Each structure stands twice: as C-alpha cells, then as structure tokens.
Simulated scan of single mutants.
Amino acid sequence: MLRAVNRVVLGLAGAVLLCGGGAALAAGTGLEVPSWWPWYGRRDVLLAAADRERWRDESWWWPSVIAALAVLVLLALWLLLAQLRRGRLTEVLVDSGDGEGARLRGAALEEVVEAEAGTLEGVARARVRLTGRRRAPRARIRLLLEPHASPQAILERLGTHTVEHARTAAGLAELPSDARLRAAAHPARRVT
C-alpha cells in the first residue's frame, strides 16, 4: 500500500509543479496566453497586493491557512516516517518462560523456515520474509514449485509442519502466514 501512496502523492505533486511551472514560464517568456491565464506578461507578479490583502480582515482566514498547512506538514511527516520504517522484521520477541523473554533475530527465523520449506517435496526454491510487529510477526512465504508438484499437498505440509515448527520453536501463540506459489518454467526439450 505504501508504494501505491508514494506513486499517487509523487504523481500529484509532479503534476501541480509541472503545470504551475509551465504557466509561469509561458507568461514569463511573453508567449500568447489565453485570457483566463493567471499571468499575462513578463512584468506581472504571481500575487498582486489586492490578492494578498483580500482575506486579511476575515476572522476565518488565518485559522484556515494555519490548519491547512498543519495538515500538509503532518502528512509530509507521516510519509517520511513511512519511508524510514523497515519492511522486514529484524527481531522477534520470544517468551522464554522465565518472565524475561528473549530476542530472536528475524533473519535467523527466516533462514530456518526457508530451509525447511525448501526440503518439501516438489519445492524448487523457498523465500521467507517476516513482517509485522516483534510480538506478532507474520510470515510471507514464496515457493517456486517443480512441474510435478501438488500445490494442495505442499500447502498442507507447509502449514502443518514448517510453519508450525517455526511457531513452536519461537514460542509464539500464532504465526499467520501468506504463501504464494509459482510454477517453475522449464524450457522445452527435443526428444529424438
């Protein structure tokens, strides 16, 4: 979702800047512009004195301007923080039974699940990525299947053994998983 929001916001900001810059450039170079165009020539200013002072005496003007700018700043900060947030879980908090708990590296758990999923019959390659929160991780599993593989059997084995082993080993109450299966493409061979 973050990728889609990034594209929409960047697209809108780019369109506004491109249109505004094009309008200012067209008027500044002295090109013929339509009568409804906001700027007419090289000596025209972006905001005339009358435009700048039009709403000054209205009681709603400054609170509205400040509120709109505050919303824009908060939106920009939210987007910045979303960019800095990692997509991959770096550690998982494990209940060790002594009330203290322990930290398990997320990469270590990913490697173990990948190795066990890769040994399933019919799986050519497995990739695992942990997401979510440290106390409530989620697993995204991508499997590349061999041509003879049975997807239903692989999914059953993945859920009942591989994910269950990882959940038990990490001491988690649950480990929600999203598995994506893709068939391996093999080139055709000529038989003589």
Results as ranks from 00 to 15, higher is better:
residue 5 V to A: 03
residue 5 V to M: 02
residue 6 N to L: 12
residue 12 L to Q: 05
residue 16 V to R: 05
residue 18 L to N: 01
residue 21 G to P: 02
residue 22 G to H: 04
residue 25 L to Q: 10
residue 25 L to R: 12
residue 27 A to H: 00
residue 31 L to P: 05
residue 34 P to Q: 08
residue 36 W to Q: 04
residue 38 P to I: 00
residue 39 W to Q: 06
residue 42 R to L: 08
residue 43 R to C: 03
residue 46 L to Q: 13
residue 46 L to W: 14
residue 50 A to E: 15
residue 53 E to H: 13
residue 53 E to C: 09
residue 57 D to T: 14
residue 60 W to V: 03
residue 62 W to M: 09
residue 64 S to H: 13
residue 65 V to W: 11
residue 66 I to S: 03
residue 67 A to V: 11
residue 70 A to S: 07
residue 76 A to G: 14
residue 82 A to C: 06
residue 91 E to Q: 14
residue 92 V to I: 14
residue 94 V to K: 04
residue 97 G to V: 06
residue 100 E to L: 13
residue 101 G to Q: 05
residue 103 R to A: 13
residue 107 A to Y: 02
residue 112 V to G: 08
residue 112 V to H: 10
residue 113 V to R: 03
residue 114 E to S: 04
residue 120 L to C: 09
residue 127 R to D: 06
residue 133 R to T: 10
residue 137 P to N: 06
residue 137 P to Q: 10
residue 143 L to K: 01
residue 145 L to D: 02
residue 148 H to E: 15
residue 156 E to A: 07
residue 159 G to T: 05
residue 161 H to E: 10
residue 163 V to L: 12
residue 170 A to C: 12
residue 171 G to A: 11
residue 174 E to Q: 13
residue 177 S to T: 05
residue 178 D to N: 07
residue 184 A to H: 14
residue 187 P to F: 14
residue 190 R to S: 05
